[in-house]
Structures are given as C-alpha cells and as structure tokens.
C-alpha cells in the first residue's frame, strides 16, 4: 500500500485526498495501484487467502 501511495505521489505530485479526487489515473496505473491497495487491505478485511 505504501508503495502504491508513493507511486501515486510520483505521478500526480500530491497525496492530498481531495486533490487526488480531481485527478484521473489512467487505466493501467489504476490496475497496478489497486493490486497494492487490495493486498494490504485484504489482510484487514479478512479476505479468504489472507486471513489465517
């Protein structure tokens, strides 16, 4: 997740959420970043292969 956030920061130049909402990421970037986010958030929500 941290790597995804850093990647977003290098592309857009900000980590402010309200500024990021006005910024559209391209489709490929979204997919890469999404994997990073889900890999960390799925541990918090116990999704199946991550929870035990």
């Amino acid at each position: 997740m941290l790597i995804s956030i850093m990647y977003i920061y290098t592309i857009s130049g900000t980590t402010d959420y309200s500024v990021l909402m006005t910024y559209t990421l391209t489709s490929e970037v979204q997919k890469v970043v999404f994997i990073g986010f889900v890999a960390s958030l799925a541990v918090k929500i116990p999704l199946y292969p991550f929870h035990i």
Binding site: I8, Q30, K31, V33, F34, F37, V43, K44, I45
Partner: peptide, 25 residues
C-alpha cells in the same frame, strides 16, 4: 472497529480513486 478499516479503505480509495480497476478486478 479495526476490521472496518479495510472496507473503509476499499470504499474510499478503491471506489473513489480507482473505479475502472474496481470494475476490472
């Protein structure tokens, strides 16, 4: 509380920031 943090992140960042990736995945 803590479990809901993950789904909060998915709603806020997943649906808010990356709608196309949400549809794809």
């Amino acid at each position: 509380v803590l479990i809901k943090l993950g789904s909060y992140g998915l709603i806020r960042y997943g649906l808010g920031l990356m709608p196309e990736a949400c549809e794809y995945f």
